[in-house]
């Protein structure tokens, strides 16, 4: 379980204090897949960084059971390491036995069908391949909580669908707790048990929607499209910004 209580985050900048997050409360149940939607600059990345202990809140607290895995907005693979060593990085830090690490790395590379590229360097991979490696670099640590920051933001429709399928399969298999950030309501409906909408800066939670559609879902499922239209309709007057962005985004990915 992941609990965020009364979270504030302020940044001191040249022009004064910027409030990125204002009084944010959110609970993600164990094994729940929560999607966080919000306009650009509302503090989504900031929130994930705080939850992952990479940044400190100005006020408030986060309570979680175990270490988190975080997938960044960009792949941020280490360019000086081969693909297999990128994937193995976290396990090496734990001092695990080499044989065992190799076995796991092979298993996860197989999962995203990139075994032939284990000896390649990151710059030899396409954008989608890099994201797949970033995904398993996080998963191989077997974290209880997955934090994902628009991981598929820059990918084409085909690659996205592929990754949605992989992600849902993994999640259905071992029911991790997931907090998934996106710009896009439809993506959120496709993946989440619950869609949480944030307001523009300073970010706080505006509305929540429970999604009960059967899994695995696809972006092009009628039900998914219907549900995301309902949500957008409900939000229309309240958060113009999110709607505008998400529509722009959908044009790009369809």
């Amino acid at each position: 379980m992941l609990q965020i209580n009364g979270l504030f985050k302020e940044y001191k900048t040249g022009e004064g204090v910027v409030t990125a997050i204002q009084d944010l409360n959110l609970t993600v149940q164990k094994g729940e897949f929560v999607c966080l939607v919000g306009p650009s600059g509302c503090g989504k990345s900031t929130l994930l960084n705080i939850v992952a202990d990479l940044d400190t809140p100005s006020k408030g607290e986060t309570i979680k059971e175990k270490k988190c895995g975080l997938m960044f907005q960009d792949p941020t693979l280490f360019p000086w390491l081969k693909v297999k060593d990128n994937v193995a990085f976290g396990l090496k830090m734990t001092g695990m036995d080499k044989e065992e690490i190799n076995k796991k790395v092979d298993y996860y590379l197989d999962l995203v069908r990139l075994k032939e590229f284990k000896n390649a360097y990151p710059h030899e991979l396409s954008g989608g391949m890099k994201q797949r490696i970033a995904l398993i670099r996080m998963l191989i640590m077997e974290p209880e909580i997955l934090l994902m920051d628009e991981p598929f933001g820059s990918l084409d429709a085909q690659t996205r669908e592929d990754l949605y399928a992989i992600l849902q399969n993994i999640w259905l298999k071992n029911k991790k707790t997931v907090l998934f950030v996106t710009h896009n309501v439809r993506e959120a409906v496709c993946l989440g048990d619950r869609v949480v909408v944030m307001t523009a800066r300073p970010g706080k939670i505006k509305k929540e929607f429970i999604i009960t559609l059967p899994r695995p879902r696809e972006l092009s499922d009628m039900e998914v499209i219907k549900m995301s239209n309902i949500i957008k309709e409900e939000l229309r007057n309240e958060i113009q910004q999110v709607i505008k962005e998400t529509e722009h985004y959908e044009k790009k990915i369809i």
């Binding site: 960084n49 992952a52 990479l54 270490k67 988190c68 895995g69 975080l70 960044f72 960009d74 941020t76 280490f78 990085f89 976290g90 830090m93 734990t94 670099r137 640590m141």
Partner: peptide, 12 residues
């Protein structure tokens, strides 16, 4: 981001 990635993957 490299530093953050290192930290989140458990580097001391």
């Amino acid at each position: 981001n490299y530093i953050k990635a290192g930290l989140i993957l458990g580097a001391n």
